[in-house]
Design a binder for these strands. Structure first.
Length: 647
RNA sequence: GCCGGUGUAGCUCAGUUGGCCAGAGCAGCUGAUUUGUAAUCAGCUGGUCGGGGGUUCGAAUCCCUCCACCGGCUCCA
């Protein structure tokens, strides 16, 4: 007998060789029906794997990540089985579970596969699922596995096998499909009751652009049809928050083929919103000791040769501009830092001056690959809320710390809670991708890691994600459809000061080299506004929203009174517009609601006589009547609460 | 950039297997209505069916090409 310890601490004695499923059945038949996988001593396994020693056991049901990914992994195998049955001779690369389902990379051997084929595959998957074929695990020698795939003529799986050690190799078979796989899997295909293929896309083999492109098919699988239905509804809801859709509906921004792809045009409401965000940050930066600077949109090519950007990105950038007479070569500014370096150099610096903090809402232009452009989150012309801090080595940690505080202040004010802090370091395997001395890199990486730790940030370390000149600390958030984007960023740079030969005179009266910190709390105004739109589903905080109040006269007899009211509100710094159309109030309300205007004032006979306001709140309805003064302080309180929440 | 998909009025969409002068709702304009908490009524305007080329007696519908957008991949100073 062996002792199985369950998460609640209870110990069950079972025969050696019993399976996790046996344990589940011994607890309750209800649990046995729901359980999908087992976590044995911290490792997720098949329910059918026998246990021979004392172990900690957690039975995993759908709500456990481990169970979900197990079922999705099995879904990938089920999809592969269906595909192989429908398209004989196709070859498979890998088919892992991912965050929202699974995918499988397939070589269709030149045959086209598109969304039109989804239906057929889904039907086949469900048909195979109903057969309740068990997922059978089998240990196999490397030689036998190689022989199996040689006979199949499958170069992809042979390639995978190359990297595996004999003795660790397992096959899983369900129905007629056998796959090289370490598992785990659900007991049988019958656990999958609902499937849907989500999309199909090209994916380079091994993620390398120079390799052949395989067909990647994404899908989801669920143990209940209802779960799939709910998932699809959720996706629909998320699409409604998409900033590209809301940006159009709320008249925030647009694009024009004629202007060029990836070059956003800010409409008046969007521009107002953005200006308010900028002013908010300008004020915070002023308090934090930043000084504004302004630099042009182009710069001499020499500037970027000095900075190293030309060597690194020159060929992949918008191409140089030449002056007609002198033949001088200029580049569209892809970065603000070289310009700021030259500002630093414009006069001698003393250690007493440091840190120097130059801030600029600097618009930069980058030739992003056409397939990468995406709404406002990835564009070719955008404005960074950039600043460069020039400081001594001793000041680096404190400055980084202050920048992080600034980002957190902004996130808190705008109620961004769901973010991840990514610490991007060098990839030790590819030193050729980076410039600068090892010693400087060491210093910078250590500083960033230490500050992140001291701040108690929830960080993930990413090797190989550093900028070519230094490590980064990025605040990552998700958009409505689950994609991750970088917003706030802090980057330490020992490199540019060297390239630009920046100096300051120390207390020892000798020249020293400053350290540079690049930082942008929003990241770019475009991306930040995009994420903000999605975050609040277009219902902006009252202090930011372009139109805070819409005045709705009941008939045109009251327009004049409303105009007076508008002026009064303006004196209170309340942004109000009048809907003057000869429409019924119901329609005006409906449209104000759809425009997500926070407050509506319905003005008719009663209001004109009494001077009171009939107030309606967007999304909530009638708030009753109040005086203008009461309304103004009501608005004021709401804004105050929003802006002071960090205190 | 690569793979796949999409592209019809300002917006959202219909347009059977190629076949009358290409349709609807909303928006816009004109007029009527003067309205009490999510759509008042009527009339009108508006599209070289993404651009170009081709097949055909005939193309929004089929083919080629370019452009843009969408979903991924790769990239992201």
């Amino acid at each position: 007998m062996i002792n199985i310890t369950l998460p609640d601490g209870t110990v069950r004695q079972v025969e050696s060789g019993a399976t996790s499923m046996d344990v589940a059945e011994s607890i309750s038949s209800g649990l046995a029906r729901k359980v999908l996988a087992a976590e044995v001593n911290g490792e997720v396994r098949d329910l059918g794997r026998p246990i021979f020693e004392d172990a900690d056991l957690k039975l995993l049901t759908w709500d456990d990540e481990g169970a979900k990914s197990t079922l999705w992994h099995s879904g990938a195998h089920l999809m592969a089985e269906a595909l192989e049955a429908l398209y004989p001779g196709i070859k498979f690369w890998v088919g892992p579970p991912v965050e929202n389902g699974f995918y499988y990379d397939v070589d269709f051997g030149g045959a086209a596969f598109s969304e039109k084929d989804f239906d057929l595959v889904e039907k086949k998957m469900l048909e195979l699922a109903r057969q309740k074929n068990p997922y059978v695990r089998k240990d196999i020698t490397k030689a036998d596995a190689m022989a199996f795939y040689k006979e199949k003529g499958d170069e992809y799986k042979l390639d995978l096998l190359e990297g595996l050690e004999d003795g660790t190799i397992t096959f899983y078979t369900q129905g007629n499909f056998t796959d090289l796989c370490r598992g785990p899997h659900i007991p049988d295909t019958g656990y999958i009751r609902a499937v849907k293929l989500m999309n199909v896309a090209g994916a380079y083999w091994k993620g390398d652009e120079s390799n052949k492109q395989l067909t990647r098919i994404y899908g989801v699988a669920f143990p209940k049809q209802k779960m799939l239905d709910e998932y699809l509804v959720m996706l629909e809801e998320a699409k409604k928050r998409d900033h590209r859709k809301l940006g159009k509906e709320l008249d925030l921004f647009t694009f024009s083929e004629k202007v060029g792809q990836g070059l956003p045009l800010w409409l008046p409401k969007g521009a107002q919103l953005r200006a308010r965000l900028e002013n908010f940050l300008k004020e915070a930066q002023r308090k934090a000791g930043y000084e504004p600077v302004i630099t042009p949109h182009i710069g001499n090519k020499e500037l970027y040769i000095t900075s190293g950007h030309f060597a690194k990105y020159g060929a992949d950038s918008f191409q140089p501009i030449e002056t007609p007479a002198e033949g001088e070569v200029y580049l569209l500014k892809p970065m603000n830092c070289p310009h700021h370096c030259e500002i630093y150099k414009s006069r001698p610096r003393s250690y007493r001056d440091l840190p120097v903090r130059y801030a600029e809402f600097g618009t930069v232009y980058r030739y992003e690959q056409s397939g990468e452009l995406h709404g406002l989150t990835r564009v070719r012309g955008f404005t960074q809320d950039d600043a460069h801090i020039f400081c001594t080595v001793d000041q680096v940690k404190e400055e980084v710390s202050k920048v992080i505080d600034l980002v957190l202040y902004i996130f808190q004010t705008l109620d961004f809670q769901d973010y991840q802090v990514q610490v991007s370091l060098r990839d030790p395997e590819t030193p050729e991708k980076y410039i600068g001395s090892d010693e400087n890199w060491e210093n910078a990486e250590t500083a960033i890691r230490e500050v992140a730790e001291e701040k108690g940030l929830n960080t993930v370390i990413e090797l190989g994600e550093a900028a070519f000149y230094g490590p980064k600390l990025d605040f990552m958030v998700r958009d409505a459809i689950g994609r991750k984007w970088q917003l706030g960023t802090v980057q330490i740079d020992y490199n540019l000061p060297e390239r630009f030969e920046l100096e300051y005179t120390g207390a020892d009266n000798a020249p020293h080299r400053p350290v540079m910190i690049h930082r942008a709390p929003f990241g770019s105004m475009e991306r930040f506004v995009a994420i903000l739109v999605e975050h609040c589903a277009g219902k902006f905080p009252l202090w930011l929203t372009p139109e805070q109040v819409r005045i709705l006269p009941l008939s045109d007899r009251f327009i004049e009174y409303c105009e007076g009211l508008e002026k009064v509100l303006d004196n209170y710094d309340i942004r109000a517009l009048i809907d003057r159309r000869a429409e019924k109030v119901g329609k005006k309300i409906r449209e104000a609601e759809l425009d997500k205007v926070p407050y509506m004032l319905i003005i008719g006979e009663k209001e004109a006589e009494s001077g009171e306001l009939a107030v309606r709140k967007q999304g909530e309805g009638d708030l009753g009547t109040m005086s203008v003064e009461a309304f103004a302080s009501f608005i004021d309180d709401e804004i105050g609460a929003l802006l002071n929440k960090q205190e």
